[in-house]
Design a protein around this nucleic acid. Sequence first.
DNA 1: TTGTATGCGTTATCAC
DNA 2: GTGATAACGCATACAA
Lengths: 337, 337
Amino acid sequence: MVTLKMLAQACNVSIATVSKALNGAPDIGLETAARIQKTAQQMGYIPSAAARNLKTNRSHCFGVIFDDGTESGLAHEFFANMLESFKHQAELMGYDIFLISGQPGPWGSDYVSHARYRNCDGVLIMVGDNVVSCGQELVMAGIPAVAVDYGVDNCSTIHSDNVRGMAELVRYVHSQGHRTIAAVFGEDCPVTRLRAASFYRTCAELGVEVPDEYVRTSLYHDMDSAILATRQLLALPRRPTCILYPDDYAAIGGMNEIERAGLSIPGDVSVTGFDGSLLARYARPRMTTVQQNTRDMGIAAARELARAVEEGRGFLPRDITIPCTLLPGETVRKLGL
Amino acid sequence: MVTLKMLAQACNVSIATVSKALNGAPDIGLETAARIQKTAQQMGYIPSAAARNLKTNRSHCFGVIFDDGTESGLAHEFFANMLESFKHQAELMGYDIFLISGQPGPWGSDYVSHARYRNCDGVLIMVGDNVVSCGQELVMAGIPAVAVDYGVDNCSTIHSDNVRGMAELVRYVHSQGHRTIAAVFGEDCPVTRLRAASFYRTCAELGVEVPDEYVRTSLYHDMDSAILATRQLLALPRRPTCILYPDDYAAIGGMNEIERAGLSIPGDVSVTGFDGSLLARYARPRMTTVQQNTRDMGIAAARELARAVEEGRGFLPRDITIPCTLLPGETVRKLGL
DNA sequence: TTGTATGCGTTATCAC
DNA sequence: GTGATAACGCATACAA
């Protein structure tokens, strides 16, 4: 391994001079600097991140909490896409990505300790267990944090414009003639509440009544609970003409159940998803859904985190809302009025 | 930040003693050790990975090359799933995951330098540009490397049993009565060659003739080229009864094109994919495909890489083959004979 | 313009 | 059993 010391010997200068020359310090002779840089090149010098980290107390890396208890995690298209664009943007700004887990290690067995152990400059909270509290802890530990989708205390949060997305969806369904609209929501969380509120409000604005039995709760990204909810909705005396699902994956489950009941989509029942995943785009019939802009969300997250790192203690967390767009497909039937 | 020095002061012992006590060295008094550990706990001590790294020259982290020039990358379900299980297994063995990019940085602008800069204990080569040569370079730089799917010089490689997978697929299609079988292959690479060879061989064994015009080349995970190939195949005077696609995604593209031509699946044309993705499972009709065991592949990769790290210079690279399984769906019609 | 000296937090050797 | 001490590779304040 080539070190500054070896370069210093090779060039007959001091370690300090080499260090400065390589870092483009202004107080080094032009010719000396050139000579040193050339030698560094020739000898294949690569700095040591660990030593730098130790000295400057900056790691130039972002920790990402991306932990799956279940089988979601990286396999979850929505989060994977966001991570991809976050990673890309972070790298452009000079940060590497480090995956933070809650597995036990030399640091303990929680996200915050893990991030401290690796001295992450900032942490992106994407998905994990008990993630809501850890934003607070991170900030207390002096580590800037940004969350996506989740609402996390004391952190900037990047999220889709769930209110508008849901509103547009309901309006679209309404415009197609639907008046008995059922909704399946994911487990209770800020995002769910926003979507639910927007659903109720928009229905009210349109003069659409929503009986309690038309609203069901299931889990995000979970087929079984979506299927169960679907079964209950189909069994109602006055069957809804359209069912809104919490995400595309759940909608696929619902669609399967609807067809299993001998009903056709959208002939007998219309459905919508949420996310705009590949699954939705290539389902047959093509799914009507709301596309979340994962690319912009990832980029915004990276920028916000970099800003948080730079501003340090003076950083004021904020909420950043990214528009989402209605993606009409073929699963919502146009009803004669 | 709490350091060993601070603990030493708090406990009225030397730094060395604290270090040993915390690392469970055998030559420390039982009572002293307990006292130190308790204090460390109370003061919230967390070791510094950077300092450890610098001193021991071990980072306890695996670099992962997961770089997308295009829009594939993490969004690619097959790789994302593998990364997920790799990550999990690596963490169990005490390694963290660091994402390596080819973006320019303080190290230069290639994967190998990046891995050296961060002092990765080992590198997993998943997907990236010019990845084939970098295995060699990594090994020369003294960094153990393992590749998945790709064949990379001087590295252990984890891959599906493409030969058997393709053979089973062809035999299945044949068993359903198909005798005019077309195949679309991905771009040229070791995996493609194995699959192609297996295709030809199995067809020969079954006495199925394969005219040249029945075989087309497209790109993996690319709709446009799959659509083009499909169009060409459908235009043949003697239209094949079944088309094998290089992956599920491409197959979806092919299916769309087939239906656009006014043909039904599997009524007029049967199709198969490769991968066993969600897309295949939830396509309608459900896609017949070959499921790659991403979970076992990821675990095997992590184990192999850990082994490579432990064995150091004496490590002998090898090829590890993971079985894949036929996943019959509804896209292959049973033909009367 | 260049060099000297110090310390970041840790491990490890060796003396006590 | 415990404690000095050196060293890992680097950046930087300060002296020359």
